[in-house]
Design a protein around this nucleic acid. Structure first.
Length: 488
DNA sequence: AGTGCAGTTGACTTT
DNA sequence: TAAAGTCAACTGCAC
């Protein structure tokens, strides 16, 4: 008898779910989610992620049960959980989506692959984004993205071979996992995700381009689909197709304009994830190795002074009100618009001269929509360690002038600004930036750095311009890799 | 009315 | 997704 297991990971939905559809072909089937200690113990994981996960699992479990598929939720190391289920139920097939994740998930996939071969379990995986596994070359990547996103969505299977005598399982609670309840709980689950998508495509997207830059307007102007995409309650293909359809049928010119801006960013989402897929070490090592060791925290532990700068940055007490306001909003709500995220990273990397790894782990815990591939690509790009992108150093004062001219945003998040309770700036902007630029540009001028930049461009650069990466092109190109990586 | 000039604006380049 | 610098075109104004 064929017994199939749908291993849910970051694909917590019924719609457009290839693994789920395939399991319906088995005589018996189960759904499975594994709460892995490697995840809970990772530096990227925060209780708000686990909370959101559990609130995605509850409606998923109910919807699957209605169709005859029990969803099992197990705590433990993946291979042990899978092996114990194989023995209990005689599992013959394992179905799942490919995942582009941190090192622990990569290592786990290798172990599961070995286990499946050893136990003769057929493990089949499907892509669910534009990310291409075992990609040979970046050439033709964009065309392949379009082909995938325009392929038909997978229909929800109507029924499964339910194992006899099953009762729906009770899901663990946050408290049982020993975790505190987050102060803010964003609405979760597939139905909520579709409501958000429809609201955005039906009119909310009208203000997208105008409103996405200011932290005052962005929470309402942006799609707010990022956490849903990160947990897979929506597939990228569903979002792409629904957006294209809405643009095509929209009689509202402003809305169509806003949605076109949104649609073009979806491609960048996968573009950045592809970098982590191709080169898993970008989560902890500089893409441009010629910059290794330049900043404190790179390779060796940093000293007290760097630690103090880092702590002030995390706490939103740098003495730069726009920076502090952004950090406080992010920590309180789990979300911040793209431009302000970039400013926070730029401030840590240039003003505070910190290596990106520790700031990146801290931000990963704050971002409810943490997506490893986008995150580490962005951390390196905004820190100037990709070697192929121009340095983008944000001026907190200019960002405040442009995007919070009346100081409303700063007053909301830093109410003590202007009183003696607010700290003086922890670094002198002018001298800090002069030193940072000198160090980075000085290194970039070296011939070894130049040779390295060509190799990186070839491996990771966007091919939007359609030109080959050559030394001649490097010297005059405008960074081709300048798209927005993250969807908000 | 035309000219010179300081200051402004925007496009484009450089870092 | 940046910001500073450069340059040319433009503007307002005094003469």
């Amino acid at each position: 008898m064929s017994v199939g297991l749908v291993w849910f990971k970051r694909d917590l939905r019924l719609r457009d779910h290839a693994a789920l559809a395939q399991a319906a072909q088995c005589e018996r089937a189960f759904g499975l989610f594994i709460i892995e200690p490697a995840w809970l113990e990772s530096f990227e994981c925060d209780p708000r992620h686990v909370d959101f996960l559990l609130r995605c699992l509850a409606p998923l479990q109910a919807a699957l049960w209605q169709r005859g598929l029990p969803l099992l939720v197990r705590m433990g190391e993946a291979v042990q959980v899978l092996e114990s289920l194989r023995r209990q139920w005689g599992v013959t097939h394992l179905f799942s989506h490919e995942e582009t994740g941190p090192a622990w998930s990569y290592a786990r996939d290798i172990s599961v692959g070995r286990w499946s071969r050893l136990q003769d379990v057929q493990w089949q995986e499907w892509p669910q984004t534009g990310v291409v596994r075992r990609l040979r070359s970046r050439d033709g990547w964009a065309a392949r993205w379009t082909r995938r996103m325009e392929a038909p969505q997978v229909a929800i299977p109507s029924g499964f071979g339910t194992p006899p005598g099953m009762q729906p399982e009770r899901l663990p609670t946050l408290a049982e996992l020993g975790l505190p309840t987050p102060r803010v709980q964003a609405a979760a689950g597939e139905a909520v995700a579709w409501d958000s998508l429809r609201a955005f495509l039906g009119g909310g997207g009208r203000h997208y381009r105008r409103g996405l830059s200011s932290p005052l307007t962005a929470p309402d102007a942006c799609s707010r689909l990022s956490a849903h995409l990160a947990f897979g309650t929506l597939s990228m293909r569903s979002v792409h197709q629904a957006t294209e359809l809405a643009i095509e049928h929209s009689a509202d010119r402003d809305l169509a304009y806003g949605l076109r801006g949104f649609a073009s960013r979806l491609r960048w989402h996968c573009h950045f994830m592809q970098k982590l897929e191709d080169q898993p070490d970008i989560e902890w090592r500089n893409v441009a190795r010629s910059l290794d060791g330049l900043r404190p925290g790179d390779g060796a532990a940093w000293g007290q002074e760097a630690q103090a700068r880092f702590d002030a940055w995390c706490a939103g007490r740098t003495g730069y009100p726009m920076v502090d306001a952004c950090m406080r909003q992010l920590c309180a709500t789990g979300w911040l618009n793209f431009r302000m995220r970039a400013m926070l990273v730029s401030f840590a990397a240039y003003h505070l001269w910190l290596h990106w790894r520790a700031p990146g782990l801290f931000l990963a815990r704050q971002f409810l929509d943490f997506e490893p591939g986008i995150h580490w690509s962005q951390m390196q790009m905004q820190s100037g360690t990709t070697g192929i992108n121009t340095l983008r150093i944000y001026s907190p004062a200019k960002q405040a002038r442009d995007h919070d001219p009346l100081g409303e945003y700063v007053r909301r998040w830093v109410p003590e600004y202007g009183s003696c309770a607010y700290p003086d700036p922890i670094v002198d902007e002018k001298s800090a930036l002069a030193q940072a630029k000198e160090a980075l540009y000085g290194q970039r001028r070296s011939s070894s750095a130049r040779a390295e930049a060509d190799a990186i461009q070839d491996r990771h650069g966007s091919r939007k311009s359609g030109l080959p990466a050559t030394a001649g092109r490097r010297s005059r190109q405008k960074a081709p890799d300048a798209g927005q990586g993250v969807l908000f």
